[in-house]
Simulated assay, not measured.
Amino acid sequence: MRIAFLSSMFLALMVGVSSVTHAAPVAEAGAPVVAAAASPDVQVMTINLNTADEATLQRELSGVGAAKAKAIVAYREAN
């Protein structure tokens, strides 16, 4: 009997907390974020890392500079 009473009180408490949480107003985050893939102006280009030269890697991959492109090609040739 005691376990059933405690279980029902816990359930009632959780339902009460849940309803208060859902009733709270939501703050607006500002402008919605739109994914780049949704824009018709964006073109997707794939690069084969096994055959691309240093200039192509540097030009087409964001965050890859001359040193990283050279390291990628050197690793590929060594292995």
Rank of each mutant, 00 (worst) to 15 (best):
M1F: 13
M1Y: 12
M1T: 12
R2K: 13
R2N: 12
I3V: 10
A4I: 14
F5G: 00
F5C: 01
S7Y: 04
S7C: 08
S7D: 00
S7P: 02
S8N: 10
S8V: 12
S8M: 13
S8R: 12
S8K: 08
F10Q: 08
F10N: 05
F10V: 14
F10T: 11
F10W: 09
L11S: 13
L11G: 11
L11C: 14
A12F: 12
A12Y: 06
A12P: 07
L13N: 05
M14A: 15
G16Y: 12
G16F: 13
G16A: 11
V17C: 14
V17Q: 10
V17I: 15
V17L: 15
S18A: 15
V20E: 08
H22D: 03
A23I: 08
A23F: 11
A24M: 15
A24D: 09
A24R: 15
P25L: 09
P25K: 07
V26G: 01
V26R: 03
A27N: 04
E28I: 09
E28S: 12
E28Y: 11
A31F: 07
A31H: 06
P32S: 13
V33W: 09
V34Q: 10
V34W: 06
V34T: 13
A35E: 04
A36D: 07
A37K: 10
A37V: 14
A37H: 09
A37M: 12
A38F: 07
A38Y: 06
A38L: 11
A38T: 06
S39H: 05
D41C: 15
D41F: 15
V42L: 14
V42R: 12
V42K: 10
Q43L: 15
V44Q: 11
V44K: 11
V44G: 06
M45K: 15
M45I: 15
T46R: 12
I47W: 06
I47M: 09
N48C: 03
L49C: 14
L49F: 15
N50E: 13
T51W: 10
T51F: 10
A52D: 04
A52P: 02
D53T: 05
D53K: 07
E54Y: 04
A55L: 11
A55R: 11
A55I: 10
A55D: 07
A55N: 08
T56N: 05
Q58W: 03
Q58H: 06
R59H: 05
R59Q: 06
L61M: 00
L61C: 02
S62A: 05
S62G: 04
G63H: 00
G63W: 03
V64L: 04
G65W: 02
A66N: 04
A67R: 02
A67G: 01
K68A: 08
A69K: 02
A69R: 03
A69G: 04
A69T: 05
K70N: 04
K70V: 02
K70W: 03
K70A: 04
A71R: 07
A71Y: 02
A71G: 06
A71D: 09
I72C: 02
V73H: 02
V73K: 03
A74W: 00
Y75S: 08
Y75E: 09
Y75R: 08
R76M: 00
R76G: 02
E77T: 08
E77K: 11
A78G: 03
